[in-house]
Design a protein around this nucleic acid. Structure first.
Lengths: 235, 235
DNA sequence: CGTGTGATTGACGCCTGTCAACGTCTGTGG
DNA sequence: CCACAGACGTTGACAGGCGTCAATCACACG
């Protein structure tokens, strides 16, 4: 982790557009710029760990972070991805609990450390900011409820279709419909709650049915209607 | 649903002790008592439905409400139970979305309808109240994250053990260790994300291993250490 | 007393996790 | 430049878990 103490001008302008910062006054934002620390993290670096104390939230300025929980035998289940503009690690701050997930960088990221006292101060003084945070958690909750249904009632094949469609929504595809997020097979497996071997087999099935195409760690979505049909969207 | 327009004195005193109301000033509470409507609901009555508009939150004054999502073929997955003092249905208010779960009474309940405008007014003016709501959502989130792990990585047997232990925490057991919450087999199945037949088989297994005893819809927990061992607590 | 719903048990077959073997790729050190 | 180790990806074989279907029993209710 490399510290970047002075937020460059570019980043400031850039950052100011994120929903989280749009609800802040210029004065509050200036305060944040002064007291927050910006750091760059390489792929694979762990931001915070499940069951550890967490002394601040982070805003993802660039890159991608995966949040997962560890199960038995170190098997991980990815619960969500955070990208530009997303706030992570605030739940444990608010409940004053240990972190309930691990956050790990999967695409080189720049993170802004958001000290706890500032978070509380903003929530207390700025109703807009408060509602932003609350709405954020509520929306995450909705997603998570959907995830439970997906994992509990769908088969691997349907889960994979569902996850691919969700990834398409959350991360862009290029003009060839290639998902702009490289994922290892193990990560795809962790997303759908399956063994890596099963995930591979499902991917191969989809490829042989011309629903997707595989280009290393990139996935090209060929037949979106088929994915929708398979995932049987009723979430 | 029977309306009970005047909250009786007993209920007022009773209700005032709930965490949600403790953070309210007397003045705010008086306002609530005046504008809120109290209603009694029989077992089986649906408070609000998934994918429907929801014009207010509810506080459970007595009884038990299950919150579930429907999957394919009307199969339901129970996400959580709400009992005395719990606030339900506020998420859709806050995000201004359709309800993402269905809430159904499983033990005759008295509910207090909490109008949306009052909820927002309280959140805006009373920081304590605001933090109560936020903390509530964050804690639910933590539970839900745990549920994902449970459903995605544990086998039926482990899931059942896990759920039984959770139910013990959330609902009391009497002096004979009998869970004070009658559940149909179908509901138990919906809790662990399994077919009713599978749930029954697992329950029978546990009984023949002297881990639990079955008394109609009531479950007597005989061997808590065994349950803990089976559930393999790493959540 | 018939009817409907829930509970229970057995039979069967698919899904999927596990183990094992092998190919592929990358980085490291000789 | 090559050899090698290690991580990742892929495929096959196999068995156990669990969903589905069907039959039977228990019980409440009109």
């Amino acid at each position: 982790m490399k510290r970047v103490k002075i937020i460059t001008f570019i980043e400031q302008r850039h950052v100011r557009c994120f929903g989280l910062f749009k609800v802040m006054t210029d004065r509050e934002y200036a305060l944040l710029v002064n007291s927050a620390v910006c750091s760059s993290h390489k792929k694979g670096s762990v931001v915070y760990k499940e069951a550890c104390v967490n002394n601040g939230a982070y805003v993802v300025l660039s890159g991608v972070v995966k949040q997962y929980k560890l199960g038995t035998k170190e098997k991980q289940h990815i619960i969500r991805f955070a990208k530009r503009g997303d706030l992570i690690g605030f739940r444990s701050l608010i409940t004053n609990n240990l972190a309930c997930t691990t956050s790990e960088v999967i695409e080189d990221a720049v993170l802004l450390h958001f000290p706890g006292h500032l978070l509380f101060r903003l929530m207390k003084n700025n109703f807009q900011f408060y509602m932003f945070v609350l709405r954020h958690v509520c929306l995450e909750m909705k997603e998570t409820n959907g995830l439970i249904m997906c994992v509990s009632q769908k088969r691997g094949r349907e889960r994979l279709a569902h996850v691919l469609l969700q990834l398409k929504e959350r991360f862009d595809v290029d003009r060839h419909n290639v998902l702009q997020l490289p994922l290892s097979r193990r990560e795809i497996a962790s997303l759908i709650g399956a063994a890596p071997e099963s995930a591979i087999r499902l991917l191969s099935d989809f490829r042989s049915e011309n629903i997707i195409d595989l280009q290393g760690r990139f996935i090209k979505l060929l037949d979106l209607p088929a994915l929708a049909r398979i995932s049987n969207v009723s979430l």
